[in-house]
């Protein structure tokens, strides 16, 4: 779709943009649940909220839901509300190969979702490269990061990369680095971050996490990215991200493993 976006951009130079008022039919608020656990953290979080009108500036947290987490051995933990829609419990760390089920009960409806923790993939290396001026159209002269990893042989591996510089995590709609192995199963991959905002200077600390995702979680993030990234052209029919929550709840439950690597720019 970016291709079409680019074409339209080339052709239409005379276009103009403005902010408009639109009339949108009302709808009932829907519950939103976001759960995240991993192999390595002691803290995990579950957030429960409701949708609000599109031009609203407030949030609508749900603090009186009953939230529990169960693994496939039958161990269950109940999570306690700590305010602002957040639910927590004591120490916990996820195990590779386990499947977890998160259950939320609110206003008489039970919502549940599951996620399995995959084996982590270690990154091969993080590099920096110097790109001279006029090497690639639109790329300024400077130092840029490149990350190498090798995909596991066999289709079905899903990844998300989290990039941070000087302890600032890149977390905008453009920072969803999601990779699958449909076109490049078992090959070594290089992720080149040549955008202006990734330009590095000596002394910068680069940190990269490589998350290994459950397939439906990857699907969720990918459809989420489709929706929130503002393309030039509308990418088909807008829809909600593909969620596996039961009873129509929005959001995701992500149980994942990860590897981490970092580098100080010389």
């Amino acid at each position: 779709m970016r291709i079409v976006g680019l074409i339209i951009f080339i052709v239409v130079i005379a276009s103009c943009e403005k902010i408009i008022d639109v009339n949108i039919p009302d709808s009932d608020p829907q519950i939103v649940i976001e759960g995240k656990i991993s192999t390595d953290t002691n803290v995990y979080s579950v957030l429960v909220s409701k949708t609000v009108p599109y031009n609203s500036t407030s949030n609508s947290y749900v603090d009186n839901a009953v939230v529990s987490l169960t693994d496939d051995l039958g161990n269950t933990q109940v999570l306690n509300s700590v305010g602002n829609g957040e639910y927590q419990t004591a120490l916990f760390s996820g195990q590779v190969g386990r499947t977890y089920t998160l259950t939320v009960q609110n206003e008489g409806v039970v919502y549940s979702n599951y996620s399995s923790i995959q084996s982590p993939v270690q990154m091969d290396s993080i590099h920096t490269v110097f790109i001279p001026a006029n090497t690639f159209p639109g790329v300024e002269e400077g130092i840029y990061p490149q990350i190498y990893y090798t995909d596991l042989v066999g289709l079905g591996d899903r990844y998300r990369m989290i990039f941070s510089r000087n302890d600032t995590v890149f977390n905008s709609a453009d920072d969803y680095f999601l990779f699958n192995d449909v076109y490049d199963d078992g090959l070594q991959e290089v992720v080149s971050l040549f955008g202006k905002r990734f330009k590095l200077k000596p002394g910068d600390k680069v940190k990269v996490e490589l998350w290994k995702l459950d397939e439906h979680v990857y699907d969720y993030y990918q459809t989420l990215e489709n929706i929130i990234s503002q393309g030039f052209a509308p990418t088909g029919v807008p829809d909600n991200p593909n969620s596996t929550w039961t009873n129509g709840a929005l959001g995701v439950f992500n149980a994942y493993s990860y590897s981490v690597d970092s580098l100080i720019v010389q």
């Binding site: 639109v22 949108i24 039919p25 009302d26 709808s27 009932d28 608020p29 829907q30 939103v32 976001e34 957030l47 909220s49 409701k50 949708t51 609000v52 009108p53 599109y54 609203s56 949030n59 977390n171 709609a173 993030y221 989420l224 929706i227 929130i228 029919v237 807008p238 829809d239 909600n240 991200p241 929005l250 959001g251 995701v252």
Partner: peptide
């Protein structure tokens, strides 16, 4: 199809589309 509402997930503001 336009968003009738919005919510937050993964640190992102996400539009909510209840109907086509």
């Amino acid at each position: 199809t336009w968003p009738a509402g919005k919510y937050e997930v993964d640190g992102q503001l996400v539009p909510y589309y209840p109907s086509r």
